[in-house]
């Protein structure tokens, strides 16, 4: 198993009140899955994705990646894991505004300590893969939202990660661009067997995933109870 989550909970202790973002999640994710995580706002989707990307640890329970407990890893090991195994795609693209598209893609290769020429070469081919071979020299401000997110995807896949973690990657895009971006991700999954975990509000996007997961108030829920109307034919049974 790529991921095994056992009774994962995340509480935020604030001065006023305690927020339970995740509440006892048990979940396994296999290699090659295209998992869509759905749920209403505040249900804990981003929190869960950050657990999976080793950006944050649970307050209770354990997250195992390839059998290794992330909570037992040092900061150094976590950094290495992030740079090798995970590729993040963000809703707001999160490109470095001063760097060109090419350089932005290269930032994902910086921790790998490879030669500058190899870095440039790999970044170029990643950009070509997302259809932006000609735009490498442009800074984010000179690119459209869709193009920026393509750069974001190129940055997420340039180091051949084990899993791409995308948090509402099309949330800031119009419908047509949204479809382009999702198709791009879907193709990676279909053609390369790339494992993809994608958080979305959007049932149309979720429908293209191999498996869907509903979160409600920090727990894995039965979509029928979870409130958001989902066409029955789009539901895929959850093999928890």
């Amino acid at each position: 198993m790529l991921y095994e989550l056992h009774d994962v909970s995340k509480r935020y202790d604030q001065s006023k009140k305690q927020v339970v973002a995740l509440n006892g999640i048990d979940l396994t994710i296999a290699e090659g899955e295209f998992l869509a995580i759905q749920g209403s706002t505040g249900s804990g989707k981003t929190t869960l994705l950050q657990m999976l990307g080793a950006l944050d640890g649970p307050t209770a329970g354990s997250v195992l990646f390839e059998g290794q407990d992330l909570a037992k890893m040092t900061e150094r090991q976590l950094s290495r894991l992030r740079s090798n195994a995970f590729g993040f795609v963000f809703q707001a693209f999160n490109l470095i505004p001063t760097l060109t598209a090419q350089e932005n893609v290269e930032t994902a290769l910086v921790p790998l300590r490879i030669s500058a020429t190899e870095r440039a070469e790999r970044a170029r081919s990643a950009l070509a893969e997302v259809g932006l071979a000609e735009r490498g020299a442009h800074v984010p401000a000179e690119l459209s939202g869709g193009e920026q997110q393509r750069v974001g995807i190129a940055r997420a896949l340039v180091h051949n990660p084990r899993v791409i973690l995308a948090d509402e990657p099309s949330g800031n895009l119009d419908e047509r661009t949204r479809d382009e971006i999702i198709s791009l991700l879907e193709n990676l999954w279909r053609e390369r067997d790339q494992t993809i975990i994608l958080v979305t509000h959007d049932s149309h996007i979720a429908a293209r995933a191999s498996r869907r997961l509903w979160l409600d108030a920090g727990a894995v829920a039965d979509p029928n109870i979870a409130g958001e109307p989902v066409p029955p034919e789009e539901l895929v049974p959850s093999p928890v």
Binding site: L55, S79, F86, F88, I96, T107, A108, V110, R155
Partner: peptide
């Protein structure tokens, strides 16, 4: 973001 990409502090 850079930390998410594996950059060390």
């Amino acid at each position: 973001t850079l930390k998410a990409l594996g950059w060390r502090s």
